[in-house]
Amino acid sequence: MKPASFDYHAPNTIEEVVTLKSQYGDDAKFLAGGQSLVPAMNFRIAQPSVLIDLNRVSDLSFIREDKKVIRIGSMARERHLEFDASIEKHAPLLHEAVPFIAHPQIRNRGTIGGSIVNADPAAELPVLMTALSAKLKAKSKSAERWIDAKDFFAGMFTTALMPDEVLAEIELPFAEARTGWSFMEVAPRAGDYALMGVATLVTLDENGKCKSAKLVYLNAGDGPVDAVEAAQSLVGESLNDTLIESAALHASEKEINPFGNMHASAEFQRHLAKTLTKQTLKIAAERATQEN
């Protein structure tokens, strides 16, 4: 099908972007990579009366190091995250996970900001932002505020952004010393949305005991699912098979809430979550011993 008609604006500065958005509010949608919005428009699921194209805004596609954080402009393409050296070095979890997002043709256009704001529970980037404790900068005509990733995702395709705000920038802290990571997902075909996936981080203390851990799941509820209890059960301990097994069991049975779909029953999704949790925890713990 073809999209309904709309008015098109292609501003060059972020100031013009927020001015336009304050003018049109909910009638206007931002056009980033278009890889989620345009399919929805072609199906007429979305029929915005105004599109504000972000592709011509200068200085919104950067990826740069700044003291102990990486700053990423919301228009940085998924393909650029994949090959960025700072991300590989300081956010290796993100580096490992980006190739799982869609296909290269989609990643060439799709942006980090677009995927985050789209807030699809099956998407990788919202899960990764949660696991990495990202901070997200929302900007409106009159104000600017930073939102923690854990407070940003407010349910299926819903975020904490106000109708007059644009997501401008993402801040990722550098990985701490002795932090191991692992991302795994199961999809019917490379590039498809996954049936289940988990982003795992383990930080060890000087004695090799677990100092902190993160287990965040995709397609496991109505947004990124942060299994805080399972992660907490590892803290202060040496990670052995028994402990990993019980954390995986707790996360997959008690903390996630998968709905099941035509490709996988909720029961199968829980099974996948358990298996992936065990595998990723082992890899992350192993890598943590090698990272200083």
């Binding site: 098109y8 292609a10 256009r109």
Partner: peptide
């Protein structure tokens, strides 16, 4: 809707779906 790939072109040298872009872009 971006799934089949039949419409793939090169946009500034990189492959992209032409069904997911507007000509005006």
């Amino acid at each position: 809707h971006g799934v089949c790939g039949a419409c793939t072109i090169m946009f500034d040298g990189e492959s992209a779906r032409s069904c997911l872009m507007f000509a005006v872009q």
